[in-house]
Amino acid sequence: MSKEKDPQDFLAPSYYFDHEHPRVRAFIEESVGDAVDAVERAVKLYYAVRDGIRYDPYRFYMRKEYFTASRTLIEGAAYCVPKANLLTAVARGAGIPARVGFADVRNHLSTERLRQLVGGDVYRWHGYVAMHLEGRWVKATPAFNLQMCERFDVHPLEFDGRNDSLMHPYNARDERHMEYVKERGTFDDFPFEALVADMWEHHPGLVEAAEADLKGDFEHEAMVDR
């Protein structure tokens, strides 16, 4: 039986969780302010990532640099995985042990164009973050920013640092929103090679569209589809 790792093992920077980068350090300091309590710091960082980085599923670049925390801050927009990597990095940089986690989900609130590129409504490797707070691991999903939620009429995910904050199963009109169909677990570092292999196998249309720079306006599409 393997021994559970010490939460302090999940504070170190990595290529993807590059919290020693000046841009990432500045983001942490600006977001956390004078907060001393770990839960308060975690909550502030969650909202800074959720709403400070616009969700854009068409930025589906399968290149290593696009999964680093610093690059996500430079871009200002990303899909769920780079946003999860960013929250993992800034949590670690603020002294909060954090791991990145993934699950396959069925998303009922997509757009017609996105569904065609994805090849259906099951999205592999949806990203979330597990932070060690008050002696336990708490999950948070910073993917969907407030403005995007308003476009889709979905309640934005709130996070109090003490309870898991995962995607809602229903939207504001009690229609199906998100189903978790496969839990992949949490990782010490970002599993780049495994994710990229699955993306090319299951979502080649989305990868090819991103690499060809065929961007879309996801929020506008949501309004048109509705």
Rank of each mutant, 00 (worst) to 15 (best):
I53L: 02
Y61N: 04
D51R: 05
I28R: 09
H21M: 04
K44L: 14
E29L: 14
R41H: 06
H19T: 05
K64W: 09
V49H: 04
F67G: 13
H19M: 10
P22L: 09
Y55G: 03
R54E: 07
D34Y: 13
P22K: 13
P57S: 01
K44H: 11
D56H: 11
M62K: 10
D56N: 15
Y61W: 13
V43D: 09
Y58V: 11
E29P: 12
Y58M: 08
E65M: 07
E65R: 06
Y55T: 01
P57K: 04
A26H: 11
R41A: 09
A38P: 03
E29C: 10
G52M: 00
E30C: 05
T68R: 14
F60W: 01
F60D: 00
V24G: 11
Y47T: 10
A42T: 13
Y66W: 13
A48T: 11
Y55L: 07
T68F: 04
E65Q: 08
E29I: 07
D18L: 04
D37N: 01
H21P: 08
E20G: 14
Y47L: 07
F67Y: 15
R59Y: 03
K64C: 02
K44V: 12
D37M: 07
H21C: 09
H19E: 05
R23E: 12
K64T: 05
D34H: 14
H19C: 12
D51C: 05
A48L: 07
I28K: 06
I28V: 05
D34L: 15
R23N: 12
F27N: 04
D34T: 15
A38M: 05
R50L: 07
G33Y: 04
A38W: 02
D37T: 05
R54K: 14
V49Y: 03
R63P: 01
G52V: 03
K44M: 12
A38L: 13
P57H: 02
Y58G: 12
E65W: 06
E30K: 15
E29R: 15
F67L: 13
E30Q: 14
H21V: 00
R54L: 14
Y55F: 15
V36K: 10
V39A: 00
D37R: 00
V43H: 08
E40L: 11
V49E: 02
R54N: 06
E30G: 03
E20K: 14
V36S: 11
A42H: 07
A38C: 02
E29V: 12
Y46P: 00
H21D: 15
Y47C: 10
